[in-house]
Design a protein around this nucleic acid. Sequence first.
DNA 1: ACAATTCCATACCTATCGATACAAATAGTA
DNA 2: TACTATTTGTATCGATAGGTATGGAATTGT
Lengths: 194, 194
Amino acid sequence: MKGRPREFDADEALDCALEVFWRKGYEGASLSELTEAMGINRPSLYAAFGNKEELFRKALDRYAEGPAAYTREALNAPTAKSVAERLLQGAAEALTHPDYPPGCLGVHGALSCGEAAESIRDELGSRRAAYEVSLRQRFERAKMEGDLSADADCADLARLVTTVAQGMAVQAAGGATRQDLRRVAEMMLRAWPG
Amino acid sequence: MKGRPREFDADEALDCALEVFWRKGYEGASLSELTEAMGINRPSLYAAFGNKEELFRKALDRYAEGPAAYTREALNAPTAKSVAERLLQGAAEALTHPDYPPGCLGVHGALSCGEAAESIRDELGSRRAAYEVSLRQRFERAKMEGDLSADADCADLARLVTTVAQGMAVQAAGGATRQDLRRVAEMMLRAWPG
DNA sequence: ACAATTCCATACCTATCGATACAAATAGTA
DNA sequence: TACTATTTGTATCGATAGGTATGGAATTGT
């Protein structure tokens, strides 16, 4: 390994980029804002992350493993209802976390790109679809394990939960408080089948 | 009335602009796309509508009175549950209407603007907030009229319904079908209190 | 000590953004 | 016809977008 070592930490810079994308969306985040927030200059960004689109994808991975990890972890809850509860209450917390911008990077980014960033929108759409599938499969397992009524439609139920979570993301972006979202989650769970 | 008459119909042009904003969001819609869709050129647009922001506001008014009129009309339904039903089922239809872009102009536009268009976001936010208030007041009236249980929290209920509607808008923008959204609305209504 | 390699910084590229200046064209009025 | 008011088309403005070329500074292995 020869050559001059880089003077910044790639993960820290990626976290800063994530926050900018989170606040402004994909197209709303300019390279000048990104480089300023990351503390590096343009050529360093391109050398380390490729281009804006690759940077966004890497920030997205980091988002999924960090601030949005609750979505994956919720699937490990013991029953169908507890899965929904951990997902929706986790959303209420995460979408209004004081250390991060309000709202959801995925929802924010998906709706805020013109046709130039179509590949970004497709990427986010397929990620959401994949999550909805895994949620449906989790509910099917719950049905077999007996903690979800046999006549429930798992696909519809998964779509309902993701729809509410996405609506909560819109609410958070619009200024809803943590308490507001907790109540939405609670009312939704009170109506849980079975 | 002196001077050369304009060669285009202002309302038709506004409808075309509305559709472009609807598909691309506020910042995602460029003036070139707008003028091309409207069939006029740039100075004519500025002479007739002021600037991009004023054009968007006028398109927003036209949206509220046209494709999104169901939100206001739903408030006239006889009972609280029928109000929610008309709103959510109306959303399922409107958000997937074949003659219009999928999704909701308000949700799309609010999440897809950087800080440059902060006034646009505030405008959309206050419109949503105003609607949520009118929905709450409608529920309070329903409580007095006896078709909503006395222990229901009208503010929470209004927020829940708008949250689901906004989530449906995100789902529609992501490609959900009309049938998908109808089922979401139906499941939500099945859990209606009282 | 030297050369290879890598990084950082300035300055610049082309394309596009929203917004306008200007003059030709079209109408009503006298 | 002369005059005025308004629209329309072209051409362009300054600002900013994403993305690079270039050159010097810094750190490594030999």
